[in-house]
Design a protein around this nucleic acid. Structure first.
Length: 127
RNA sequence: AGAGUUGGCUGGACAGUCGCCUGAUCACUCACUUUUAAGCUAACCACGUCGGCUGCACUUGAGCCCCUAUAGCAUAAAAGUGAGUGAUCAGGAGGAAAGUCCGGGCUCCACAGGACAGAGUGCCAGGUAAUCCCUGGGGGGCGCGAGCCUACGGAAAGUGCAGCAGAAAAUAAACCGCCGAUCGAUCAAUAGGGGCCUGCCCCUUUGGUAGGAGGUAAGGGUGAAAUGGUGCGGUAAGAGCGCACCGCGCGGGUGGUAACAUUCCGUGGCUAGGUAAACCCCGCUCGGAGCAAGACCAAAUAGGAAUCCAUUGGCGUGGUCCGCGCAGGAUUCGGGUAGGUUGCUUGAGGUAUGUGGUGACGCAUACCCUAGAUGAAUGACUGUCCACGACAGAACCCGGCUUAUAGGCCGACUCUCUUC
């Protein structure tokens, strides 16, 4: 039932949680428009948090739009097995993209994280 | 019909699927509190020794009592509170939510007084909780007009400033020009007088020429601005020097609550230039910080305070003992961090009607409750339609101002043209 849901359990809420991801990030994917950082969590589900600086995206309407689209995309990733806390850092160029382009940009980087995670699991099992 | 002025309203619509936040109701789970029910615990271990008993031993030690059930422990049910999950229902950004430029409410701090500094403000009257806002009125400017703009107190309190041009920029001055009366020089003339050398000289008068102490502010030219304008008289030339009209100042009257107006009366020949978003003067206003205000609950860690225990032993003080201090243990307390709760949406609130007022707005009655997030909700996708959707996202709350804005709708008014 909660497959498509998006409650507070799937969000990063505290400054400490954000700081932990920055300190312990193992996965990283970035383009000119967006940067994803991720650190493993023990909860058995992924969580997501946003950092959209006012310096990068000046208008509040644009910041809200980006958050909503990426959150909506993240919500629909029902088969995502990535047990990580993910931080999305938004850069200036993302505000110029359309809704559809923001979505594909985010999903492409998210799958990059999944591939990195799989590669790590393989090396861990060898070691 | 075209051009324009002005006031107000609106700010994509509908359907489906999947989500987010808040509230209400219901169900389940967990925690806490209260009540009720039935139940378990007087045992064991350790310690203390005010007293008692037992009993060994001769003064200490051992065992029991010395104390609880009106207590403690866990269980179940019901009720309440809180949290979580699920279901259903309801609600969920703006006209500017923006800039944070003013004004208030609210909160805390300081204090409730006075003075100075500083900042703001500035025609008048009214509205308001209040304002730098709004309404009405006055003055000035722009527009054929509807209308628009206006930082609009004081320049005879003082100080300062004015590039370029121009002769001169604030107190009068004089470049060109005009005049040159009064002054001597020179020429001429006629008239008059005088002298003698009898055709010359002198004096007076008149006119001219060049000069000139000086007079003048009409004219020229410069400038944003040059010490009222026009005309006539007047004069050597001119000039408010005089007069008429216009303008201006002052006093009075009249109208107006007032700013102010004045086809009214008198008076002054006109003096008093500009600049105060230059200093300044005058009147009025202003304590500071802000919801990250403030209030409450409060883990861990460190530290603090109080009480009790141990003070046999340790460290310090000291020759030693007592004592004192430090370190130790237990309990309690307050401050307070993370975190949480609250402040937090019922308010100078909306809508309708009536009513007072030119209007801003006030008053009365009825009805309505309309976001409350906090790493921060109010959305995404699909389809259909059309005028193809601008500027843009609440963060304690209101009243204004300013700035941004695709379009669409309604009202009032002005000018021009055409037809009747």
């Amino acid at each position: 039932m909660a497959v498509y849901g998006f409650s507070k359990q799937q969000r990063l809420l505290k400054a400490r949680e954000f700081q932990r991801v920055f300190d312990q990030s193992r996965l990283k994917a970035s383009t000119r428009a967006i940067l994803l950082l991720a650190a493993a969590n023990p909860l058995g589900r992924p969580r997501i948090g946003f950092i959209i600086a006012k310096k990068q995206v000046r208008l509040a309407v644009q910041r809200n739009r980006i958050k909503r689209i990426i959150r909506e995309s993240f919500r629909n990733q029902n088969n995502l097995t990535l047990n990580y806390d993910i931080i999305v850092l938004v850069r200036k160029e993302l505000a110029n993209l359309s809704n559809q382009d923001i979505r594909t940009e985010f999903e492409r980087q998210l799958f990059k994280l999944v591939r990195q995670d799989n590669a790590l699991k393989v090396t861990d099992s060898h070691a």
